[in-house]
Design a protein around this nucleic acid. Structure first.
Ligand SMILES: [Zn+2]
Ligand SMILES: [Zn+2]
Ligand SMILES: [Zn+2]
Ligand SMILES: [Zn+2]
Lengths: 134, 134
DNA sequence: ACGTATAATGCAAATCTTTGCATATGCAAA
DNA sequence: TTTGCATATGCAAAGATTTGCATTATACGT
């Protein structure tokens, strides 16, 4: 199975933008080159790329899934639920956890772009401050 | 902030069913008691319960978010992408990982129902078998 | 090149979820 | 009780994603 033209266009878009893009953003970006392309085709092509492990798909708390190229080193994210700040963590900080889970459960983890939600340091301070003010 | 009647009904449904339910399943369940309730109201009530940390919401690979009561001990899941099998792991197996991430990044993790995708032991064997057959 | 099988695409409809706005409801102060 | 405010709800529309089906493009063996 060869990479379809839409897959090709998606891959180039993702490597050029080098960030988390929604399906709509990808769609609008590749329209320039493939004017007749349909949104469902983009969804299906993205799905195939995700299945191949070339692209990650994640819910980062915005109300649309985001896609990212996975060629460069694996990474993961911490997303602040207060200010929406996105922090990046390397796979080294996750590796040993994944290994332990895999061994204990005889389960081969495929998840490649972990998203953990919480409160960033700034927002934690703000909570403390607003408490102190009372 | 008062507990709305819809929240109340949702909580009772979730504690009775004691499993991962979609918004639609919750909706249809509470219709018996609140016949005029609207689906968007259910979505909003679920959203509030999630924000309060009483209920978890997760994408488990089915194409609809699932909600679960969090009163009993925290747990997480491994979901097989081949056969859809859902395995449960205790929070003890995740705790130290979360702690390390929190300390290193000064980030307070709120994620309370982690979903890791991968391949279960059965399906790993099947892959090996089909390889051997060739 | 030809015919066939497989995979990709477009299109429209279905499904899932969010959102804006008007109304209704519960709570508390007056 | 009445008033005022904050929150919850219904409704409809918008937005996001999936799916069924017919058509087209591609690969592969002849
Ligand atoms: Zn990323
Ligand atoms: Zn923050
Ligand atoms: Zn669960
Ligand atoms: Zn499996």
């Amino acid at each position: 199975m060869r990479a379809s033209s839409v897959e090709q266009a998606i891959l180039e878009t993702l490597s050029k933008e080098h960030s988390h893009l929604t399906s709509l953003q990808v769609f609008e970006e590749i329209r320039g080159r493939l004017p007749a392309v349909n949104q469902s085709t983009v969804y299906r092509a993205l799905e195939r790329l995700v299945e191949q492990g070339v692209v990650s798909v994640s819910d980062m708390g915005t109300h649309a899934a985001v896609y990212e190229l996975l060629t460069d080193g694996r990474h993961h994210h911490l997303v602040c639920q207060k200010c929406r700040r996105v922090m990046t963590i390397g796979h080294e900080d996750v590796q040993s956890f994944f290994n332990a889970i895999q061994e204990k459960n005889h389960f081969q983890i495929v998840t490649n772009h972990l998203i953990l939600f919480g409160i960033c340091d700034n927002c934690q301070e703000n909570v403390e401050n607003s408490r102190a003010e009372k």
